[in-house]
C-alpha cells in the first residue's frame, strides 16, 4: 500500500517540475516522467491493460509535444492583475481540495470498493470461460458503444488535423 503513495509523491514532484521550470524541453520531459509514474501506478493497482495503453499514449504525446516546443519559456511576467488572478486561483484550489477531502467520508475507503455492477460481469463470464480478460470483454461486448465512440473520437481528430493543416484554405473568387 505504501508503493502507491510513493509513486504519487514522485508524480507530484515531477508535475511541479513540469509546471515551474523555464526550459520547455525540460517541462515536456517532466510530463513524460509523470506519465511513466502513472504507468507504474497502474501496474501496482493491478491494471496491466492500462499500463500498456498508458505507455503507448505517453510515447505518442511526448513525440508530438517535442515537435511543438521551442527552446525557452517566456519570462515570468507580473503585468496586469497577475497577483489577483494567481491568488484567486490558489484560493479556489485550496477550497476545492478541502471540500473534496471532506467528501471522502462518503466514498469507500481505499481498497474496499462496493463492487455491484462488476459482479454481474463475473457471473456472466464464469459460466462460459469465453473471454478470460474481463476488461477486454467489457470493452468489446458489454460496452461496445463506448469503444465505437472512442474510435470516432480518434477519427474526428485525424480528419480535423488534416483539415486545419491544409495550406490553401479558400478559393479566391470561385462562386
Amino acid at each position: 500500500m505504501i508503493e502507491i503513495n510513493i509513486l504519487l509523491v514522485f508524480m507530484i514532484a515531477a508535475a511541479l517540475i513540469a509546471v515551474q521550470v523555464k526550459d520547455l524541453l525540460s517541462s515536456v520531459i517532466g510530463i513524460g516522467a509523470v506519465g511513466i509514474g502513472l504507468s507504474m501506478a497502474f501496474l501496482v493497482m493491478k491494471a496491466p491493460d492500462l499500463a500498456i495503453m498508458q505507455l503507448v499514449v505517453e510515447i505518442l504525446s511526448l513525440i508530438i509535444l517535442i515537435r511543438a516546443t521551442i527552446r525557452k519559456d517566456l519570462p515570468f511576467s507580473t503585468s496586469g492583475r497577475w497577483a489577483f488572478n494567481t491568488i484567486s486561483t490558489i484560493i479556489f484550489l485550496i477550497l476545492f481540495l478541502v471540500f473534496a477531502y471532506l467528501s471522502f467520508a462518503n466514498i469507500h475507503t481505499f481498497g474496499n470498493p462496493a463492487i455491484k455492477t462488476s459482479q454481474e460481469y463475473l457471473s456472466h463470464v464464469q459460466g462460459k470461460a469465453a473471454n478470460l480478460n474481463i476488461v477486454e470483454s467489457i470493452m468489446l461486448r458489454y460496452r461496445a458503444v463506448d469503444t465505437l465512440g472512442e474510435a470516432s473520437v480518434l477519427f474526428a481528430v485525424v480528419i480535423g488535423v488534416l483539415a486545419i493543416a491544409r495550406r490553401a484554405w479558400r478559393r479566391d473568387g470561385a462562386e
Binding site: K46, V57, D146
Partner: peptide
C-alpha cells in the same frame, strides 16, 4: 478481483485524452 469497470472506463478516457 479488482473492479474491472473503472479500468474499461479509464481505457476509453486515456484514448480520448
Amino acid at each position: 478481483i479488482v473492479d474491472p469497470l473503472p479500468q474499461a472506463v479509464a481505457l476509453t478516457a486515456i484514448v480520448i485524452g
